[in-house]
C-alpha cells in the first residue's frame, strides 16, 4: 500500500518533470545556441495554453484545437522574433533580460485585456477521460500518462535531431563556437529563427498539455519560467540531455518533497514542528538542490560532457 503510494508519487514527479522538460528544452537551446536569455519563454507556454483553449472552444475538438493553437503560437512566436528578439539577440544579456521582461508585462496584461483575468476552460479530451487502477483506492489519470508519453517521444525526437542531423550538428557547433559556424557560411540569424520557433512550439505544446490540469490564466507562465531556468542551469546550459535529466530530477524531488517531507520530519522533530517547517522546507528543496549542484559544478550536470 505504502509502496504503491510511493510509486504513484514517483509517477507524478516524472510527469511534472516532463512538462518542465518541454518548457526547458526550447529555453536551453535558444540560450545555448544563440546566447540569448529569453525571459519571455514562459509567455510561449501561456500563449500555447490560451490559443489551444480558445481553438478547442471554437472547433469543439481537442486534436483540431491543439493543432490550430500550436500553429497560432508558432505564428506569434515568429512575429515576436521578427519584431524584437532578432534585434535583442545582438544586445547584451542585461538588455535581453530587460526587453523580454517588458514582453512578459505586455503579453500578460494584453491577455487580461482581451480575455479578462478569469481562467479559461479546457477539459481533458474525451478519449483520455479514464484512469488506470493501481489499487482499490489509487488510480492514475490517463491524461497524465499521455503527457509523460508525449514528453518521452519528444525527447527522443529532439535527441535524434540534435545528435544525428546536419541541423543538429550546426546547433551543437553554434553553441560552442559561433564564429566557426558563421565561417561555414551558415546564416546564424536563420538558424536562430528556426531554433527559436522550435523552442516556442515546444513550450506552447507544454502549455496546451498542462492546460487541462491547471488554471489557464495570464500569469501561468511566471512560475514555470523560474522552474525552467532552474532546470537548464542544473542540467547545463545548451544541453538537451541535461535538461531532460534535470527536469526529471527537479520534478521528482519537488513532488516527493511535498508528499513525504512533512510526514518524515514529524517522526524526527514531532508533529507541530514538522507542520510548520515541512511545507517551507519542501518549497525550498529544489533551490537547495540547485545551489548544491552549482556549488560543486557551476557549469551544470551535463555541460561539457559531450551531451549537447
Amino acid at each position: 500500500m505504502s509502496s504503491t503510494l510511493f510509486l504513484l508519487q514517483l509517477l507524478n514527479g516524472l510527469q511534472f518533470g516532463m512538462v518542465l522538460f518541454l518548457v526547458a528544452a526550447g529555453l536551453t537551446l535558444v540560450f545555448g545556441v544563440m546566447d540569448f536569455i529569453n525571459l519571455a519563454h514562459g509567455v510561449q507556454y501561456t500563449l500555447g495554453a490560451y490559443l489551444t483553449a480558445l481553438c478547442v472552444a471554437k472547433f469543439g475538438h481537442f486534436g483540431l484545437g491543439l493543432v490550430a493553437g500550436l500553429l497560432g503560437a508558432l505564428i506569434l512566436g515568429y512575429v515576436l522574433e521578427w519584431l524584437l528578439f532578432g534585434v535583442l539577440m545582438h544586445r547584451s544579456h542585461l538588455e535581453q533580460v530587460l526587453g523580454t521582461f517588458g514582453v512578459i508585462l505586455v503579453v500578460t496584461d494584453g491577455l487580461k485585456m482581451l480575455f479578462g483575468p478569469a481562467p479559461l476552460p479546457l477539459a481533458v479530451p474525451e478519449a483520455f477521460q479514464w484512469s488506470v487502477r493501481l489499487t482499490p483506492t489509487l488510480v492514475y489519470p490517463a491524461w497524465r500518462l499521455a503527457i509523460m508519453l508525449a514528453g518521452v517521444v519528444l525527447a527522443l525526437v529532439l535527441w535524434w535531431l540534435v545528435a544525428k542531423t546536419r541541423l543538429g550538428m550546426l546547433v551543437r557547433a553554434g553553441s560552442t563556437d559561433r564564429e566557426t559556424v558563421s565561417a561555414l557560411g551558415v546564416n546564424i540569424d536563420k538558424l536562430f529563427r528556426l531554433v527559436f520557433a522550435f523552442g516556442a512550439v515546444l513550450a506552447a505544446f507544454a502549455g496546451a498539455m498542462a492546460g487541462p490540469l491547471i488554471s489557464i490564466e495570464p500569469t501561468m507562465g511566471d512560475n514555470i519560467l523560474i522552474l525552467a531556468f532552474v532546470v537548464i542551469v542544473v542540467g547545463g546550459i545548451g544541453s538537451v540531455r541535461g535538461a531532460f535529466f534535470a527536469a526529471i530530477l527537479i520534478g521528482v524531488v519537488d513532488t516527493l518533497g511535498r508528499a513525504f517531507l512533512t510526514g518524515w520530519l514529524a517522526g524526527l522533530v514531532g508533529k507541530p514542528a514538522a507542520a510548520s517547517v515541512g511545507p517551507a522546507l519542501a518549497s525550498m528543496l529544489i533551490y537547495i538542490l540547485m545551489a548544491l549542484v552549482l556549488a560543486v559544478r557551476p557549469q551544470g550536470l551535463f555541460a561539457g560532457a559531450g551531451g549537447k
Binding site: L5, N12, F16, T137, L138, L213, M220, T255, R258
Partner: peptide, 17 residues
C-alpha cells in the same frame, strides 16, 4: 498545507485517495 500558488496537486490527491 500546500505551497501558495501551487498548481500541481497530484501528490496531495494521491494521499487523499
Amino acid at each position: 498545507f500546500t505551497q501558495l500558488g501551487q498548481l500541481d496537486f497530484s501528490a496531495e490527491i494521491a494521499k487523499i485517495s
